[in-house]
Amino acid sequence: MTTDLAIEAENLARSYRTRTGWLRPQRKTIEAVRGVHLAVGRGELFGLLGPNGAGKTTTIKMLNTLLLPTSGTARILGYDVARDALEVRRRIGYVFGGDRGLYERLSALDNLRYFAELYGVEPREQLPRIQELLETVGLSGREKERVEGYSRGMRQKLHIARGLLHRPQVLFLDEPSIGVDPAAARELRRVVADLVAGGTTVLLTTHYMAEADELCDRIAVIASGTLRAEGTPAELKDRVRKLDVLEVEVHDAVGPEHLQRLRDTAGIEQATVETSGTVDVVTVHARPSHGTHAAVLAALADLRTGKVTTREPTLEDAYLSIINGTTTGSA
């Protein structure tokens, strides 16, 4: 089978049925992913960016064969994820974030030896491959220690080494840097960049904008199970380039009525608030106009306001405005 695409998805959807309670069970259907289209080329580093519960993990689990789609289809290197699961599994690696998913009582080396066996690495290749990967992820010298004593960052490195044992052509990385310290996260980005330079296709999910911005060739933003926008980081930023971003420090608690008043103001597209330390910071996306500054302060007139700054829009601003539905459609 030949295709230029490493990952294709058409109308991919997945719902979960949950049941709570024994005597009078309550049944609920959650539409986790609702009709996602993806086309990722070979060797591309594609980012799936979205808030918690957006459907990122569910999408990845359908692509890596752990979950069957409820409707729609997906292919990895031309192989259907539902019908040719075995062929897909031989060609993909899966790395998930979090503390779990490793045999705590075994050393890193033995974890890798077991999964090398499970993932069909040729017996004589196993040890050299494991040594090479321990070197790559920076665990050499610690491989004989039991995983139960590993830090969060070391576990993540081990997860990555495991995902790469069988030299997968397509790698799925589900929130790899969740809870990892900044230095380890930087190292992790280096490993991912090296992999892509070596020709591996990577699909990475994250809710960190900076990570997506730095690493990804292309990003799709997902929220509530649907793709809201897709493009290069620069293209996504362009959507908000025409806007000014204003940040106002407020020394009182900002309520929903203030945000609503701001959103109702002419020329303002987006207003959010975030608490940092003792101050609330209100972020406003507005069409460039001389009156904006005064209009924003007027809307917050009953609060004690501090410093007001204007800055260039970042990818995070683009992301927020996409998630909140002010700019939609494809780039």
Binding site: T65, L66, R89, Y94, G101, Y103, E104, L118, G120
Partner: peptide, 18 residues
């Protein structure tokens, strides 16, 4: 308990042998 079942089930190898 270890959350490893997913990683095991991704194996393409024989379930009988595993």
């Amino acid at each position: 308990r270890f959350g490893t079942l997913g990683a095991v089930l991704l194996s393409p190898r024989s379930r009988g042998l595993i």
